[in-house]
Design a protein around this nucleic acid. Structure first.
Lengths: 148, 148
DNA sequence: TCAAAAGTCAAGTGTTTTACTCGACTATTG
DNA sequence: CAATAGTCGAGTAAAACACTTGACTTTTGA
């Protein structure tokens, strides 16, 4: 039940792009440097995000990555699905429950279903826009505390 | 973000014990057979559950495992913690957030905290007693459907 | 009293997943 | 046309997972 670095780094990268939304493309190197992530690894994650239609790119000089939509219109659920393939906590939740032989008799399944629906609710209602606002707020508070 | 077999098997084993609550000890072999889990692996899980005070044992002939309390008084959170060590989705939630260098500036952290509190709420409010009832209900329904 | 039934424990092992890296390539632009 | 920037597939070391093994100890009933 641990979050992978893929999800975490990917989310942070998308928030980084959100911070520059409307300002033109941001290069991979810039995002990697800002977030302290290896360029080669981040590129893989960006590829997934691109395939999922969350980011788009321009090549050549002054090229880079951009969000395809406003940050408020990108959900965390969508982003995480792009990065990790699925956000399902078990194979017996979700559409293809047939993978679990005794899905209908396993005593843990009702719990899994309840948990999954609560998790999905949070991931669906939270947007990249919100995470970005939180992040900016947080940085302001730290700056303020440091100065006093 | 996948549930391990430790958690799943362990939960199922505890529910199995709950089904026989008040009827004296159930042997490891019996639980393993009923749930289709390897005895040797299950023994490991039972050990964790014992150390956590969720089950107790009697040795020798006719010995086996018993719950230390009524099923309604054992939460899923407690059980899962015993089995998996922790139910935290990331190192930066929970008491020791210092393991994450940039805990206070990571833009994913607010999401993690929200998610974790929702997950814990479910795990805390759900008891082994409830899972056991659900399971018995479910088996009845299947039996009924099969006969008609 | 001793053998069979049952739990206890630490260590070992094969497989899978994670978290990366590497190198060769393509597109764009000043 | 060369420098900049994204694209792609494959490779790899380390960790986590899902077990197995074997050598014990404890209890009890015949």
């Amino acid at each position: 039940m641990k979050f992978s670095t893929k999800g975490t780094y990917g989310l942070r990268a998308v928030v980084e792009l959100a911070k520059h939304y409307g300002e033109g493309p941001v290069s991979l190197a810039a995002v990697a440097a800002e977030q302290g992530i290896s360029e080669a690894y981040l590129e893989q994650l960006m590829r997934s995000l691109k395939n999922a239609g969350i980011v788009k790119t321009t090549r050549g000089k002054a090229g880079g990555y951009l969000l395809t939509r406003e940050p408020q219109r990108i959900s965390v659920l969508e982003t995480l699905r792009a990065l990790e393939g699925s956000t399902d906590i078990a194979d017996c939740v979700g559409s293809d429950a047939s993978v679990c032989e005794n899905a209908c008799t396993c005593s843990a399944r009702p719990l899994f279903l309840k948990l999954q629906s609560r998790i999905n609710a949070v991931l669906e209602e939270t947007t990249i826009g919100e995470l970005t606002e939180d992040h900016i707020e947080q940085k302001k508070r730290i700056e303020h505390a440091r100065l006093s």
